[in-house]
């Protein structure tokens, strides 16, 4: 098992290196001085030309491209992501500030959509051909067809503006700290964000379950005289779960992407919100670092998914 995990991590490294190299190349090509990406621009603006040149030398910015990339990479690995062009804030500070909100939102949505999607999909498969099944199929289709942000807008109009049950946006009002103060804020964004994912997981869980139920070991289980619930859940669902988890892994980038727009709709103070601001303001260092980070997050998530599938499915461990 450990060798499996290590092997999976080793596969990721060349990918991350390639992408970081591309990101660095893009950083060099886009406007904005390389020095300013490394030191606080406020400080940089007060420097004389001579001092500036000295700094360039000190940071190795006159060295060949590939060396500069090496320096940048080691900086990044030590947590020095450079500075945002707007306000000169260190990007690492922005990450520390904004990341918890995004993680909170994505994890709640992920958990919700996985659980609900699996339950509905499995139920639908077991009741194949019933009215419940066909209505769930249609609802699922509608779920993947409505733009998430539009759904968010409608929810906002109904639950926040007209009914006044839930707050319009934000994550937490100043002075309110308990978990119960947070819950009303996260309900809408998390539900809206998980809509598409739930529908996707549901559809996939249904077909995966249907597929599992046609396998011969189901007949074997039935021939042993086991009760239906055990056949369906222990034998059917357990086997159907592996492809569903793999799909959730594939969909994670979508969830992360979806949170970019949803954070905007609900003024959720997360990384996605920051990203939109950076794209609008052509804050290239910040844009690049968030993009790089998102790739890192996706690759890590896929690693976790791989380990998870290996844990629940003995077949994967061997291959």
């Amino acid at each position: 098992m450990l060798t499996y995990v290590i092997r999976r991590i080793l596969i990721l490294i060349p990918m991350l290196l390639t992408i970081s190299f591309l990101v660095y190349t893009a950083l060099e090509l886009t406007p904005g001085d390389a020095v300013s990406a490394l030191i606080n621009p406020e400080v940089a603006s007060r420097l004389s030309d001579a001092q500036f040149a000295e700094l360039r030398e000190a940071y190795g910015l006159n060295k060949p491209f590939i060396v500069r990339y090496g320096i940048w990479l080691s900086n990044v690995m030590q947590g020095n992501f450079g500075h945002s062009l707007a306000g000169g804030v260190p990007i690492s500070t922005i990450f520390l500030d904004r990341l918890p909100a995004t993680l909170e939102l994505s994890l709640v949505a992920l958990l919700f959509s996985t659980v609900l999607g699996c339950i509905l999909g499995t139920y639908s498969a077991l009741k194949r051909g019933s009215i419940t099944d066909s209505s769930l199929t249609v609802v699922g289709m509608i779920g993947v067809s409505i733009p998430e942000f539009f759904f968010g807008l409608v929810a906002l109009l109904i639950f926040a503006l007209n009914l006044g049950w839930l707050p319009v946006g934000g994550r937490l009002l100043p002075g309110y700290e308990t978990i119960w103060d947070r819950v009303p804020h996260i309900i809408m964004p998390a539900m809206v964000l998980s809509l598409m994912m739930t529908a996707g997981v549901m559809r996939y869980a249904r077909s995966s379950m249907l597929d599992a139920l046609t396998r011969e070991f189901i007949t074997t289980a039935r021939s042993k005289g086991l009760p239906e619930w055990r056949i369906n859940l222990l034998h059917g669902f357990r086997v159907a779960l592996t492809p569903v988890i793999v799909l959730i892994g594939f969909r994670l980038p979508l969830l992360i992407g979806g949170s970019v727009i949803i954070e905007q709709v609900f003024q959720w103070p997360g990384i996605g919100n920051e990203f939109i601001g950076a794209v609008r303001g052509s804050d290239y260092p910040l844009v690049m670092m968030i993009a790089l980070f998102s790739v890192f997050a996706v690759l890590m998530a896929s690693l976790i998914i791989d380990v998870l599938t290996a844990l629940i499915d003995p077949r994967v461990r061997l291959s």
Binding site: M15, T18, T30, G257, V260, A291
Partner: peptide, 22 residues
């Protein structure tokens, strides 16, 4: 295959926004 993997390891909307900004 590698190039496609490269593109697909980005969350699509982030890659799109990144390219838009460039």
């Amino acid at each position: 295959l590698r190039v496609s993997e490269l593109f697909m390891s980005f969350p699509q909307i982030i890659l799109v926004l990144l390219l838009v900004s460039i």
